[in-house]
């Protein structure tokens, strides 16, 4: 446990001494803020038409549906591109500058290295999403949205991001080139993002499988305020899978 904390602390120091974490967090907040502004304008526009909609018996615009759901869905898209920037250096850099030799010849297990590094990513991600939570929070303070979906949606996005980070770390473990790690994890995540596409033309259990594999579909329940065991298991297994791959990749280094 002490080793995990030591490695996590060292990673955090790297994140926050070098400008990476600040750039990614600022970029994320900026983008989310921009989308929040846009979604808010759309909501206002629809709201102005409320009397007309009411007259024709059409449903009124809903704060949760328009802004909260839209915002969380957009966050996932942004994260597909930004998480690889956070994870690309996490192991690759260490291999390139030779500090991996220090870690592997110290009384630290590969699992401890992997968990320590993942924990540091989790902290950075939590800070990043936490800062962006200010936008839904504004809705709670100044509006009357349904509050539980806002929180469950946040948990869903958090789990999804941790899953992305875990996969990004696994990709970074396979190479010593940061650019290769960054591009490969971006491609992997993008592929995962659109994985449900074949479901459109398929039917039956094949379509089900593709839908099940899609993080977008899985996070949808959370965003709508339904925390299901199925989706939770999906994201947790994604995290575990990434950690497992990282562990294997690094263990393999010892057996060249």
């Amino acid at each position: 446990m002490r080793n995990i904390i030591a490695i996590c602390k060292r990673e955090l120091l790297s994140f926050f001494v070098s400008p990476i974490a600040y750039f990614v967090i600022t970029g994320f907040t900026l983008l989310v803020g921009y989308f929040f502004f846009n979604l808010f304008s759309i909501f206002l526009q629809q709201y102005q038409m409320a009397p007309y909609l009411q007259m024709r018996g059409m449903p009124l615009p809903n704060l949760n549906q328009v802004i909260v759901e839209g915002l969380y869905q957009t966050m996932i898209v942004i994260l597909v591109f930004l998480v690889p920037l956070l994870t690309m250096r996490i192991v690759a850099e260490e291999k390139r500058r030779g500090t991996f030799e220090l870690l592997l010849t110290s009384p630290v297990s590969v699992s401890e290295i992997v968990l320590g590094k993942f924990l540091s990513l989790a902290v950075v991600i939590f800070v990043m999403l936490g800062i962006s939570f200010i936008f839904p929070l504004l809705l709670i303070i100044y509006g009357t949205p349904e509050v539980p979906p806002i929180f469950s949606g946040f948990v869903g996005v958090l789990l999804c991001t941790l899953g992305f980070a875990s996969i990004g770390m696994a990709v970074s473990s396979f190479t010593e080139n940061q650019i290769v790690a960054g591009v490969s994890s971006m491609v992997t995540l993008l592929l995962l993002y659109v994985i449900q596409a074949p479901a459109e033309s398929l039917d039956g259990s094949a379509a089900e499988i593709f839908r099940y594999l899609s993080p977008v579909d899985q996070v949808q329940d959370f965003i709508r305020g339904v925390v299901t065991l199925k989706s939770t298991v999906y994201f947790l297994s994604m995290i575990v899978f990434g950690l497992f791959l990282s562990q294997r990749a690094l263990d393999a280094l010892r057996w060249r």
């Binding site: 060292r10 120091l13 790297s14 001494v17 070098s18 500058r97 030779g98 500090t99 991996f100 030799e101 220090l102």
Partner: peptide
């Protein structure tokens, strides 16, 4: 051979 230092520490 190459001292395993972390540049940012």
């Amino acid at each position: 051979e190459n001292p395993p230092l972390y540049g940012e520490m």
